[in-house]
Nucleic acid binder design. Structure first.
Lengths: 219, 219
DNA sequence: GCCCTCACGTTTGTATACGCAAACCGGATG
DNA sequence: CATCCGGTTTGCGTATACAAACGTGAGGGC
């Protein structure tokens, strides 16, 4: 059916499709992912679909409850706290290293962009998340540590789900933008301590906001 | 041929076999891992072998140079430095959290065992590494953070190779034992700062020793 | 009426067959 | 002699076939 270099492998398509559906919530936590069912639904064979499921399991986005049944992983407040523990470890380290190794001008430009962010419109919010993704990418590039980038990639895959669960309020977004601006400024200034501590503060505030949003959502 | 639950899955056997051979050096960095060749050698079919290769690739132990050729990942001094960067981030965090959450008596007992270690004989060295593995396991249990444990598991898989590349000298082993004893003591004392800083010191010394050992080996 | 047992269906794990693309090699030609 | 072209071979990605095991439900026995 599909050729060896089919532009994109069937297993990649299956992985991307399932990843998107899990992150977007289309596949709710607890959803059972049967091989034949998902394979036919996504239009691939069982073999590449199995590969996609194993990759998702390695990411921790799905869990094999029993050898026979794999489900979309749950994500409760305890999981989010745990996620932020490792996130703090990785991102503080990343910030510290990027402050030492990064391109000052590049991060200065990013800091400036964080001041320009317009969070009033919905499209501005999308632009904002894109800007954060760019900062993350530049951090990874500056640190130049594949082990670290790989671990962060996994963490970020989970964070997409967290963001969806806890919708940010406008005032939190504004504060978040200011925090990011400070982080970028610290990176531009090559101030490793400030970059790490600003990251710590940002993640603390982000976690608090998320947890509060969750308790409000389920009174 | 093999049954569904053949005590242990063929893919698991293939993964374990390849992992061991990579960690032990039997499969040297750069070795090409052809699917059919390895499948016949390990006595499994291509399908489970592919799964094993993908898991190893996710761990970063093998890399797919092209769609046609996957090789055992190299590991030079820069890689080792990068590995220790993330290792420090994860283990310092782990130590800090375990100091807050762990069982004091348990870590006190481990600290005591680190004083008893006999490093004169070769078998003592194996016992020592087993003891370190036990400390790692108890740290993971105390922290109770699957994301963190999973990331550390990957790091540790690489560290086995590093240890093999750079044989520890007896004096380094003795110092290492003392450092571990202090870490365990800090955990027992619920002193998070001391646990984190002692871990930092230990990893610094370990890295220095390894890098020095490498430069001595290749003058 | 309840429980135990057996059988069938469903689902997974593994093996194998097939198709295509790229690399290698040989020969021919400039 | 070098270079290019075409055939062959090798090897991966995918699909499918097959076998085993777990779950479920029905039927019979106590």
């Amino acid at each position: 059916m599909a050729s060896v270099v089919d532009r994109v492998r069937a297993s990649d398509r299956a992985y991307a499709a399932l990843l998107d559906e899990i992150q977007s919530g289309a596949l709710a936590p607890g959803s059972v992912l049967a091989e034949v069912e998902q394979a036919t639904r996504l239009g691939v064979s069982r073999t590449p679909l199995r590969e996609a499921l194993r990759r998702l399991a390695a990411d921790g986005l799905v869990v094999q409850q029993s050898p026979r049944v794999t489900v979309v992983a749950g994500l409760d407040a305890a999981d989010i706290r745990a996620l932020f523990e490792i996130r703090r470890a990785l991102e503080e380290t990343s910030a510290r290293l990027a402050a030492q190794r990064g391109d000052s001008a590049l991060f200065a430009a990013l800091a400036e962009e964080f001041t320009r962010v317009d969070l009033s419109a919905d499209e501005g919010r999308d632009d904002y998340y894109t800007l954060i993704a760019r900062l993350d990418a530049e951090l990874d590039a500056a640190v130049a540590n594949d082990y670290l980038s790989s671990a962060l990639r996994t963490v970020r895959a989970h964070l997409v789900r967290v963001r969806r669960m806890a919708r940010d309020k406008p005032e939190r977004l504004a504060a978040s933008a200011a925090e990011h601006r400070l982080i970028a400024h610290a990176l531009a200034s090559r101030d490793a301590d400030l970059a790490a501590h600003a990251t710590h503060v940002h993640l603390h505030n982000a976690l608090e906001s998320i947890l509060q949003s969750l308790t409000e959502g389920t009174p």
